[in-house]
Each structure stands twice: as C-alpha cells, then as structure tokens.
Design a protein around this nucleic acid. Structure first.
Lengths: 210, 210, 210, 210
DNA sequence: AATGAATGAGTCTTCATTCAT
DNA sequence: TATGAATGAAGACTCATTCAT
C-alpha cells in the first residue's frame, strides 16, 4: 500500500477525529498522533488548526455545490424533475462515500461562530439559488406559492442532510448505515417517490387537466 | 427583576454558550463569567462541566418525550391523526421557546461520543417506539410497508428538528426565525398539510373505497 | 454503639487519612466526609487544617514523653536498666495501640517545614534529655564514651520508631503487624536482650571485676 | 558553570522540594519555578508529577540495591562480614551524597498509597532477599534463630535509613549532618562495631570453642 | 452546635503554536 | 520537508476557608 503524503494523512485523521469528538474537542496532538506525523506539521501545512477546518469545509462544499450546478446546467437538455433527481442521487452518493466528512460539516455548520459563518455564507446563498432554480423549473405552472416552495426547499435540504447527521438513529430504524452502498439506493427510491408525489404529479394532476 | 439563583443562571449561561461555541468549545470560565458567578460553583452544583451537559440533555428529552407520550395516551379518545398533529404542534412550540437548547441538543447528539450515547440511547429508543405507535395507528389499513413507515419516521423527525438546527438557513429562506411566535404557526401549517397528504388522505383514498 | 462527638470523629478520620495519604495529600473535605460531618466544622473546632495537625502532634508527644518522664522519676526507686526497659515497653505498647497516629507523626516529623519544627523542637529537646538520663544512669561506671552514648541514643530511637514507620516491611519480614498485641511482646523481647547486651552486661562485665 | 539540561534541573528541583514540603505539598509550579523552566515541561518530560516521583524512586532504589547485589556477588571471593561491611559503607556514602533524595524516598515510602506500593514492592522483596543472604552467610554456624535473623534485618535496615530520615535530630545529638563527609566515617565506625559485636564475634565466641 | 452556599487562590494538565535545527 | 524542545495561555477542577443562618 502506497504511503500517504503527510498532508493527506493529516486530513484523513482530522476528518475522522473531528467527527468523533467535534472540532473543538479534537486536539492537534490527537490528529498528529493518528496521522503518525509531528504536530508541528499541522501548523506548517495548514497554518493552524483552523486552516485545517477551512480546508475540510471548502473541499466538501465545492463538491456538494458542483452537483447542483451541473444539473442546473442540464436543465437545457432534460426535463427538470430528472435534473433534480440526478442531483439528489449524486449528492447522496457523494455524502455516502464521504460520510464522516458530511456528518462533521453539517454538524459544525450549525454552530453560530463567526469563522463558520464566514466560510459558509456564500456557499449557502449559492445553494439556495440553485435548489430554488431546480424546483421552480418543475413548478413552471405556478401551482405552488412562494411559501410552499420555501417549505419544499427546507424539506428537501433536511432530507438530504439528516441521514448523515443522525447516522446512528437511521441505523437503528432502518438497519442501514449511511456509508453502505445499499443505503443510497434504498434512500434514493424514497426521495424519488417524494419528488414525484410532492412536486411532479401534483403539478401535472392539477395543471394539465385535459 | 428578581435575581436568578446561582444554579439557574449557570444553566442559562451554559445553554447560550454551548449553542454559540459548542460544548467542547465552551469553557467553564466562560460560563461562570456570563452567569456572573464563581467558576467553582459549576463543579459545586453540577459536579463538573459534563454534569451540566447531562442536566441540559435530560431536561430537554424529558419534556420532548412527554409530548409524544401524552398523545399516545390520547389515542384512546381521539382520532390518531389528531393526536399526531397535536404532538407535533406542542413539540414545535416547546422547541421554539427553547430554541437555543433545542439546537444545542440536536447538534451535540450527532457526536458519537460515549457520554452522549449513554445519555441518549434510552431516550431514542422510546422516541422511536412512540412515533411508530402514532404513525401505525393512522396506518391501521396497512397501506404502508414497513420500509415506508420507517422512511416516514425519519422524515418526520428531520422535519421536527431541522428548523432548529439550521436556524440561520431558515431565516434566510423564510424570513422567520425559529424562536419567533409566528414561525410555529407557519411551519405547523405545512406540517399539518404534510401529514394530511402523506399519511391521512393517501390512506383514506385507497382504503375506504365505499 | 455510642455516637462519637463531632470533634472526636474528626480527629479519628484525620489520623486515618493523614496516615494513608499524608498530611498535604489529605483534604479537609475528605476528612469531613469520612467523619460524616460538615467541612466547616474543621475550621470551627480546630481553627483550620493546621490546627488539626498540631492537635495530633501534641496528643502524641505528650503521651510519648510522659512514659520516659515517669521512668526517669522511677530512677530513685529502681535499677536504671529496669526503668529504661519499662519505658520502652510502655512506649511500644502505646504506639501499637495508636499505630496509625504513630506512623503518621514519625513520618511527618521528617519534613523540614517550619510548622513541624515549631511544634516539635521543644519535645525533641526533652526527649534527648530524658533518654540520655536513663542511659547515663546505666552507664554510671563510665564505660561508654560520649560518642558511644550518642550512637546508642540514635540506635534506641530508631528501634522504637522504625516498626511503626515501616509497618508493611515488618509484616513481610516477621509476619506480625505493629498493631497486633503479639507484636509488642515479641519485639520487646528483642529490645530487652539488646539492652542487656549493649548496655548492661557490657557494663557489668568490664566494670565490676571483683 | 555549564547549564543543566531542562530535564535534570527539574529532577534537582523536585528532589529538593519534595524533601522540604513532601510530595503532595509540592506543586509543579514550585518545581518549575525553582528549576527556572516552564511548568508544562514537567508533563512533557515526565508525564506528570507522578512520573517525576517514579523517576526519583527508581533512580534511588536501583542504586541502593546495586550495592547490596555487588556484595552478594563478592561472597564468592571474600569473607561474608567484609562483604556486608562494604555494602553498608557504600550505601551510607551513597545516601550521604544524595541525602535529600534518600530522606524523601524513605519518608514517602511509609505512605501506604497504591502508587508507592506498586513501585516499591518488588524492590523491597529483593532487598530482603539480599540482606538475608548476607547475614545468613555470616551466620553459617546457625547460632541465630530465624526470629533473631529477622530482628537483625530490621535493626540493620533501621540503622541504615534512620540518620537520613531524622537528619535534624542527628545533628542535634551528634553535631554532624548526614550529608557531611565526616558523618559517613563516624557513623560507619559504629556500624562496623555493631556488626562485629552482634554478628561476628558472637558467632565465633560460641561457635569455635577450640 | 452545625450547615450549605459561595469564593479566590491554587491544583495539575493540555492546548496550539513557534523556533532552531 | 520534517522534527523535538519549549512555551504561555488556558483547560477543568479542588482547595481551605468564610459567613449568614
């Protein structure tokens, strides 16, 4: 097995530990020990513990938003519900393969600290814009009020993040852990149906009467 | 204004700070300073920082589960969908008036530390049991598969907690903060409709053909 | 069983704990808990932790020196070697029945702190004077040089204290603990012989040739 | 004067302070201040205050037992009483040059704490074995009973440690402090004689009647 | 006589980081 | 690129004691 670079092994160890003990609860010494490197390297490569946090956040959100963006681009070529579904599937899959990072990020994001807000605010703005775009495209017939759409955004978002935040709970209810391959398939089926029933069919039912 | 007892002012300060900076990120000195008491009192009254955490958790979950329990009792006297709706309304209201505590608890719960698991495991078991009871009662006609029910549980739970975890996001999408009185009313309306559409009507539509 | 007075139960608990954990290693809270009284009582009755220490020291040394003093008085009526032997026996017995206190005092005395020195210096002066008196009386014939006498004093003293200081060691070598009744008898026999051989017989052998 | 290493200056300061104020009575801050180093170094180098204690104990007992061991080896080449005498002389000398350490160790050893017992138990077992070996070799003629030998062991041990435990007392009786060069010579003479009279001559007197 | 609340100073340890190498 | 030594600040907690009751 190829030896990981110092930098990468630090990131790996950090994600794992941030997850288990939270950001503040993790010390650079812990990270360094787990990564089998000298603690000084963390300051050296990431300009301190906070730099490491930012690296993780940026890595996660760049990928996360890219999936939405791709599918907003696809709106030109495909039906909007398909685009939304593909985005959802990709994001579930991405989070499943990076479930430690996902959980850590979604949790830490709920802290109202200034650092976090500085990093995330622009990502969130973009996220809202993209989700709205996708949903509104489906809702071209104007069935939904603005308030409805906002509720749908919130609902969609909570469905996308919740399994990763409360992995343990999910496992106990469903006997599937969010990092298992099978989880994505199973969970996606429900989301697919949810989109059909909450967005598409309701639209078509009411909108295209003849 | 009546001076709060030392004990209460510590709890208040703790909830507020745990919220802003997370449990690990908050120091007992911070708490003591905000509560304007001597740091030693925290060990004196709560047997250390961790004891304070447990106090918060227990207080929250006891109340949270009481609402579900009440309405499971009410199943004898009222239609199940009404019971579920009342439970949801009460819980939203409780969380709204204790939004700092709610956010902090739901976040910290996502950390897989042993302490947290020890405190929460029995609560979560009870929670699952109660929610399932309520949903299954509505689903007496057996329209839903087990997998469906489990998905509904997850969905319901995420809808109940999400606004408090991501208050900032919510505010930006909806212009309402989860601690405002108005939020509960507005958000509840959507949940009410969600129950009707996802649980009740689907049931009745298919179940009572005439 | 009669309930002990608050004061006495504090002293009892203190001796026991000072013994196990040393004076500095014992907290007033520990003492209070063991004595089942309120910590404030220790300041109330003994004027603080140090007062408790002094009480213990004084109690021990007053008794300890009384035995020597008695037998120095007896020199008028009995042969000096008998007086010394009786003193030794009484002191062994006293220490055996108060072995916790004895051990604690002899240990703490070896700390060069000012407090200890203030309390003990006058006692030690008196002790030296009394032991010397007893030995010199036996040595009336001037067999021993001054240096010899001083060595004998040191030797005697170490024989008197050592079993209580190193109780554990003694138990392992001899299978007797210093607080057992049997120990006093056994150990005294050796000391008796030691006096005979080191002091008395040597004296008589050389001194009374005719 | 060459600057001592951080590690060594910590040990030096620790021995000195443990001596004056006892182990529990000494704070790491005191040690650090006296050693003119940062308090954190104590945890860094010795894994905490207790680690420092263990270091001191181990250092002392390893040396202490080495002297006995050497002379048990010498039994093959020299008369046993000479071996015992050399061991005693070396140990006196070692303790005299490390009188602070010696006093501290012998005192702290009398505390029945678990830590102390864990460290010392194996040393004490070895010590007993070696002393017994030396004395029994002298007593080849079987003059002494087992009980006698055990008493001699206790007596010898108390003679070896007592001057260092009660240095102040010694000084007042003898006008010599245990760390002065002269003390070793003077005290050794008495011990030499004690061996002759208590072990050797008694043996020969009774044993080789003609 | 006895106590529970409260305190400020002090406990040991760990923190993230720096710096010479 | 990588490290071991070293540090000042901060961590949670315990201390002996006081005081109103």
């Amino acid at each position: 097995m190829a030896k990981m670079s110092t930098k990468d092994s630090i990131i790996d160890a950090a994600i794992s530990l941030f997850n288990i003990k939270g950001y503040s609860g993790t010390s650079v010494r812990d990270i360094a020990k787990k990564a089998r490197v000298n603690p000084a390297n963390i300051s050296y490569y990431f300009d301190g513990k906070q730099g490491l946090l930012e690296k993780c956040f940026i890595h996660f959100f760049e990928a996360y938003l890219a999936f939405f963006e791709e599918e907003v681009q696809s709106l030109k070529f495909d039906r909007p519900e398909n685009c939304l579904k593909r985005a959802i599937y990709k994001i579930l899959y991405f989070q499943s393969t990076n479930h430690l990072l996902a959980r850590f990020v979604w949790r830490e994001v709920s802290i109202d600290s200034q650092i976090v807000r500085e990093i995330t605010s622009s990502y969130f703005m973009k996220e809202r814009y993209l989700i709205k775009k996708l949903i509104e495209e489906i809702n071209a017939g104007k069935v939904f009020s603005n308030s409805d759409i906002h509720f749908l955004i919130i609902q969609l978002r909570s469905l996308l993040t919740m399994p990763f935040l409360n992995g343990q709970y999910l496992r106990e209810v469903w006997n599937v852990s969010p990092h298992e391959r099978y989880f994505v398939e199973k969970y996606y089926q429900h989301l697919d149906r949810w989109i059909e029933e909450s967005l598409v069919s309701r639209n078509s039912r009411l909108n295209i009467p003849v």
